[in-house]
Nucleic acid binder design. Structure first.
Lengths: 146, 146
DNA sequence: TGAAATTAGTTGCATAACTAACTATATGCC
DNA sequence: GGCATATAGTTAGTTATGCAACTAATTTCA
């Protein structure tokens, strides 16, 4: 078998993130077509703030799986777009609490609808059981590497 | 149910590419620890050239799922590092054939060993059957969105 | 109490992504 | 042949990522 060293090859698509990239691109496209001027990365930050507002930047790092500089700059851009506001914590002066503006709160429902619709497009022909398996495997991979 | 609009929430980790990001980071770290000075993006280009050398940039776009500017710059950097060389096609003067240097050929085995080892680390505790399911779902998602 | 270690956040640098606009070559078709 | 169209690749601008080094505030503990 001449290509023995590539026997795992199909799995490198996981490394390249081809499936998640495809989903992300489609979501970005769907946002754009609805006239929403946010990136998927910004959206993923807003997503966690909609679940729980006024998180510290560190907490956003943990929840979005990004490092601190990435969050610093995402928050910079979100602040420029008036979607969030940094507020100094009263109990710990090192901490910035990142809070949603009214404009961001208004975006919640429509963007989540678009995200759900995008996931539906992505998952056509995929049975629920297999989705559960993917979630399980992802969690295991995540736990193995973190 | 107050959080109804988030019912699909767990799946947004697919959009965020958390699992593939974790694998990619680990692979990058393993490369670095072996003294290999390449990025995973560069590696993914080399990977396709090891399978078939002297591909056009457009073909590399298709196989690595990147757009043309991304490939232009990846090839720029790989050329600076003397790992590939652009060669004009003799039959179509628009086309650059991207060919491996000897230095790149020598990197094949060790980097693929590291990638396989990284996948093994990532997949500890995951059964073969579930891996097949993930591959199947990814392929379906990909086909749905491309 | 006060020095050392930890934690939160920022900045600088290199690489990479997407979009849009561009050049150059090739192909199709009248 | 020659114009319209398509294809291959590059460039410019904005956003994002990872790492390392940095400041400022807090906690630990001798």
């Amino acid at each position: 078998m001449p290509n023995n060293q590539f026997k795992r090859g199909e799995l490198y698509s996981v490394i390249n993130g081809m499936a998640s990239t495809a989903v992300a691109r489609r979501l970005q496209k769907n946002f754009r077509q609805s006239g929403l001027e946010i990136t998927i990365e910004q959206w993923s930050v807003l997503y966690h703030l909609w679940k729980e507002d006024c998180l510290s930047q560190q907490e956003l790092c943990n929840r979005t799986f990004r490092d601190k500089p990435s969050i610093t700059r995402l928050i910079d851009n979100l602040e420029k777009q008036k979607l969030v506001k940094r507020t100094a914590s009263k109990t710990d002066r090192r901490i910035n609490l990142v809070c949603l503006t009214d404009a961001a709160k208004e975006m919640q429902q429509v963007t989540i609808d678009i995200a759900n619709q995008t996931m539906n497009e992505a998952l056509v022909g995929v049975i629920k059981e297999d989705i559960e398996t993917v979630k399980k495997v992802f969690q295991q991979v995540f736990d193995n590497l973190i």
